[in-house]
């Protein structure tokens, strides 16, 4: 037996995804510092990064960036494996599924705002489902659904507009 050296080759894809995920993680951490009136209602600024990545590099990269962000963000905020982590993971996975379907919408008519809304609503849907099945096994969790959905509409619109703005202004992250 000879000494074996495990060598990790870093591809261009890896660097790009790492850079984009870093941007998303920074937004997650920054957002955690913003005081919010209702638990569960937050802008989800990191989703702007997901949208830009989806638009520019496709769904696979968007999924990597999102899942890395959820994992690393929760580690940084001390939320890893806490209820909030599972809720945010469930929401993110649901939005990724929605984006996977939504990316096939004709881009001539459906821009980042549509994607953003789809993702935001799927996020709430995923979170409420997990909350209902696991944390609060009572239909009472749905009582606040209208508030969450309204927040999803507002932040879905604003995040989508910001993503669209970044994409057209050429200032989007990930440009090398």
């Amino acid at each position: 037996m000879t000494r074996s050296v495990t060598e990790l080759t870093v591809s261009r894809d890896d660097t790009r995804i790492a850079r984009l995920a870093a941007a998303a993680i920074a937004l997650t951490v920054a957002e955690a510092a913003i005081p919010l009136p209702l638990p569960g209602v937050k802008p989800g600024l990191a989703n702007i990064v997901t949208l830009v990545v989806l638009w520019r590099y496709g769904w696979r990269d968007a999924a990597w960036v999102t899942l890395l962000r959820v994992l690393a963000g929760s580690l940084l905020l001390g939320q890893f494996l806490a209820p909030g982590f599972f809720l945010s993971a469930a929401g993110s996975i649901a939005s990724l599924i929605a984006l996977g379907l939504g990316q096939h919408l004709p881009r001539r008519w459906f821009g980042p705002v549509s994607h953003s809304l789809l993702a935001a609503f799927a996020h709430i849907g995923g979170q409420l489902t997990v909350a209902r099945l696991w944390f609060v096994p009572h239909d009472g969790v749905f009582y606040l659904a209208p508030v969450f959905l309204t927040a999803a509409w507002v932040f879905g619109l604003s995040n989508g507009l910001i993503a669209a703005h970044l994409l057209t202004s050429g200032k989007a992250p990930g440009r090398t």
């Binding site: 004709p106 459906f110 809304l117 959905l149």
Partner: peptide
């Protein structure tokens, strides 16, 4: 900002808003 909205986006927004009201 509104320049970034496409026809389908307005449609999506309307459907989503209707969903909110319905909820």
């Amino acid at each position: 900002w509104l320049r970034h909205l496409r026809v389908g986006d307005v449609l999506t927004l309307a459907v989503a808003a209707a969903g909110c009201v319905a909820s």
